[in-house]
Design a binder for these strands. Structure first.
Lengths: 200, 200, 200, 200
DNA sequence: CATGAATGAGTATTCATTCAT
DNA sequence: TATGAATGAATACTCATTCAT
């Protein structure tokens, strides 16, 4: 049950812990392959091969291929439990507040997961649900943080909501944008831009 | 169900016949199916069946399955040739300018095409190219329009660029957002919000 | 649709007709293999191999494996259309009447079919239905023939029914009995035995 | 659902414990499943699951899957040791004699066993042997009993043999017939019918 | 005895693609 | 152009069986 890995440090050198168990290795491999090639175009045999386990073992843990995707999304997309603390919020600094929020954003977890979530929204209800929940959460937190950080605009709820939704959209899709245009949107600049609108 | 879409013209010049030709019917069917189920998960046989043509005919027009996708994207994603006219731009009304731009936006073409473009970015270089070109185009036009519409901010190029990129992001992904959260982002509100930031 | 073969003369020498078509060859092979090894234990690949057609073609004609069995049973178990003529019935000779009936009995069709019918009764509703219909038919005809052939017992309907059911049971299961005990029940003797009971 | 059947004794001698031991539970489950679904179509894992034992334990007791079937047939198909007593035979009452014989007939053991025996005749030599032995036994006993019960026909050995074989056929397959036609053959009526033939 | 992870050969089924007509 | 039978590589999934604990 203990899901060992955390992206960016999946198997660091000095790890004296034993090999991650087979189930984890399967999910690791699937995460990478689904992100690269997509769910449909990734044969289970390749997942097994890439994970270094026999083909049959994949089905031991995940009776259907779709269960690999579902487990992946359920176990790895929302694992980072953000403390509810909105201590990020610094009154008078909405831009910095948004940037700090983005840094600790759950979607910051594995870039592979982000690609999977967006690419496979239609593949399974579970993916769509997780992505939806994620989006709502970001909007909710951005809104909460902005309420504290932008005292001047606190009265204009509608404006705060648009700000939160706009920031969320940029944040949620930035990875996709990066793929498309080849250039990453500068989140800091967007945050400042939004702060401007709130300040006026 | 009627595949005679309002999304651009597919019919050959002199068409008064009721039935589009086979090739068109194949593309119509593929467009719908790829959007629904994805490229990989859509068998060519189903495209043929849905188009009401024999299986073999699909390969007569499109030697490889991928050619269906490529033709679809090449012929239907950018067909709406926006007049270069930035007559949309109304000096002093950046919000209205953005909204008008959005209304005539190429991506406003077939919703199915949008889903295909986003879902199949990684399936073929051609898709990625078209989507990239589309995105650049939107940013470019938004930027151009804003230059004219927001004379006050005209000097601050960096700010205009962030504004354009932000609006483009919201615009490009609004359909996706809609699916996820079940509620459409209010483009007008975002446009006004952006105008606020430009005005201050 | 024309089902060429009739067992015992599936491919006689002087047959100038071309090879039976692929579909027929598949059914021929399946009939033999299902009878030998049973439905479950017969891989579709072996059917194809035995029929001399590529694996995929089996699924071209029969989308699911069970469809092969169903087609087999539906098309080959009841094909022999017995003329309704009860001319078999010879008044005063119930024994001869039963024997003649047995000789033209539909189940006399392919011995392989008989083994399939009995072995796979539980495999699919269609098999059970065909076998049930066959049994009812035999009882019905035996009863009809006996009514005419055994005028002495014509008044004792109950006795005629028992006679018909008994004969049908022996007839229907004789192939199985043969397998089990290694010795065939002598149908003639049973017919005479039954005639005895009717005569007394 | 309660596997404590009336069909022979499975429990070890001193059993007062509520739970049969694992081996017995495995056989119980297999008996039910083989009868329902057939040997080939019943995975060992399902036997284990249905018996409430871990998968590995099945192979502890029965190294190969086929051993489960063999053990089942060997231990449960002939267990009811009929006393050799032909005290059933009542001179002058061949019908009653046959009916009494049928009531104590070994095949009266578990209906599930009967279906297994008939369905899996070809699966393993052991099954065929047991079924063959069973059939011979029935014929042998019916013959013996009829010799005593029908003194009038005692001289006509051939006729007695046909009578025995006919009755055995009806008896052995009545369960199958029941499934097929949905209506059970009336054994009493058949017995009387046979007695008639012997008496004339 | 008990347990369940591990293994890999086998199986039904799918599907892009070819091609004779 | 049309047509649909033919082909076989690929793929998800099954399952008997082994084995370390």
């Amino acid at each position: 049950m203990s899901r060992v890995s955390r992206w960016g440090r999946r198997r660091s050198a000095g790890d004296r812990a034993a090999d991650p168990d087979s189930r984890t290795r399967i999910l690791d491999a699937a995460e990478e392959l689904f992100a690269e090639t997509g769910y449909e175009a990734t044969p289970t045999a390749r997942i097994a091969g890439s994970a270094g386990v026999p083909k049959g073992l994949v089905f031991h843990y995940f009776p259907r291929k779709i269960d690999v995707l579902v487990a992946l999304v359920d176990e790895r997309a929302l694992v980072v439990e953000l403390p509810e603390s909105e201590s990020d919020a610094l009154p008078g600094d909405p831009a910095g507040t948004l940037v700090r929020l983005a840094r600790r954003f759950p979607l910051r977890a594995s870039p592979a997961m982000r690609r999977i979530l967006f690419r496979e929204v239609d593949t399974h209800r579970s993916v769509r649900d997780v992505l939806g929940r994620l989006n709502s959460e970001v909007v909710r937190r951005a809104l909460g943080a902005l309420k504290l950080a932008a005292p001047g605009a606190a009265g204009d709820m509608a404006r705060l909501e648009v700000a939160a939704a706009t920031f969320a959209a940029v944040l949620m899709y930035q990875e996709n944008l990066h793929q498309l245009t080849g250039q990453r949107v500068d989140l800091d600049a967007v945050a400042h831009f939004i702060a401007l609108a709130l300040g006026s």
